[in-house]
Nucleic acid binder design. Structure first.
Lengths: 247, 247
DNA sequence: CGACCGATTGAATGACATCAAACTAGGTGG
DNA sequence: CCACCTAGTTTGATGTCATTCAATCGGTCG
């Protein structure tokens, strides 16, 4: 439980570590990997539990809405979008996921995924299969503890982000950009200069705004010298102003 | 794990059961109570774990935003609202809670509550203290299993409801009413005739709409013979039409 | 009965969507 | 290598819908 536990797995992970990948200790699966790895004597064991570092191409689908729950995923590098409601109405983007984040925990209870997950760029993932999940849960209380903590964290995070949808358009976009900035910073990536891996259309869909509105807002923020926007490259010139807009 | 487990706790709970209370087997704490109770030989033991049937008055606060996490609550009867952001901006209603539902799970990870919970009417609750939660977790894997399932369920539920905020106003209200209807039905309460325990202002705040808009929409739905609205009493006259509006 | 809070209704303003069109970047094939 | 093509993006004009401001109504409680 200590935060200063022997970084057993961390080292193991890092021997394959490439520059654009998030380190294991910044990964939401870290607690889980650590617990699983500490229990088993040799590190080879871990590879049987967590399938590590599969690569996926841009546009690849991790799982589809409705598909039975089979695994949870941790993002090692790259980014993904969740979307749902493809049938009668146009699909809606419900979330963006970046390196270090866990996907699929909400399917544990339902038994099936309630949204589809698509890679926004070439990415790599770790995968924890459902049967392994169950086994670990029965054997290790500490593992379940980790799972509970992660779920609880996701729940409170989602509650916060759910609120921005009721705000005025420029607040929504500002909040969105600040959220991205914070998440990049947590991953020890540049927080004020970054590339958007998603289209304006995806952003609009996610924020519940028209593509045109997103475009206009970017132009407006550019005009106000709050942002520097070049295609999908964003530089936050005036973070204070952006925070003021987001309130 | 079987759904047909001996209803040990159910009976125990019911001996104090009053007409407006949700039965134990419809309570989100049920799994937890069942697990905790089955483990201990006598039922007296359960009362040491879960403090049952405290009553609270309308306007009473279970906990305040920012307060350290000390317990999770199950609603036995009545209803509550969650609200947050009281400082610089006007408070926002983030959720409504009805009998059988669990409150506070998202504070496990954060260690403190991120919103305040207020009783909308005279209500009664069961309370599971944090230290008991920890103890149970360490002792009983099945308990953690229950917690994980509940958390996962809450997560996917929240994802769905977060989407309605992007819809057009009458869709939002229709979806809200249908959601209430479903939740009442799950509690074996009348699903098409019910009393709103929250004000129009709370509804508007929750849906991100002005009070006046809510009022107008109610009048409009009344006009269209979809609803019968008398103050806070609602009767759904045409469920199909309401579903069509909600899409 | 009067005061107050919640709810309703109307009119004017404003924000965002929609429609329509031009533009750009990135990729493809000649 | 360039012309072309397409998907993504930007910009303008117009309409719709929800907010805001303002006034009134109704119910509840002292």
């Amino acid at each position: 439980m200590s935060k200063h536990a022997k970084p057993l797995i961390l080292d193991h992970c890092n021997h394959k570590h490439t520059s654009n990948e998030v380190a294991c200790d910044l990964c939401a699966l870290y607690g889980i990997c650590r617990v699983a790895g500490l229990e088993s004597d040799d590190l080879e064991q871990l590879d049987k539990v967590v399938k590590r570092r599969e690569t996926v191409k841009r546009g690849a689908v991790l799982f589809e809405e409705g598909e039975p729950f089979h695994a949870i995923y941790a993002i090692k590098s790259g980014s993904f979008k969740s979307s749902c409601g493809s049938q009668d109405k146009r699909p809606r983007v419900t979330a963006f996921h970046f390196s270090g984040e866990l996907i699929g925990l909400d399917a544990i209870q339902a038994g099936h995924y309630t949204y589809s997950v698509t890679a926004l760029e070439a990415s790599s993932i770790c995968r924890l299969e459902f049967d392994q999940l169950e086994q670990l849960g029965e054997q290790l209380p500490a593992f379940q503890q980790e799972l509970i903590a992660t779920l609880s964290g996701q729940l409170s995070q989602l509650q916060i982000t759910a609120l921005i949808n009721q705000q005025i358009a420029n607040k929504r976009l500002a909040t969105f950009l600040l959220d991205l900035s914070v998440r990049f910073a947590e991953r020890e990536m540049p927080a004020s200069t970054f590339r958007l891996s998603m289209s304006r259309s995806d952003i609009g869909n996610y924020l519940g705004l028209a593509v045109e509105t997103i475009s206009r807002l970017f132009s407006q923020l550019q005009e106000q010298k709050v942002l520097d926007v070049k295609n999908r490259m964003i530089e936050i010139l005036d973070p204070a102003a952006l925070r003021k807009i987001a309130l």
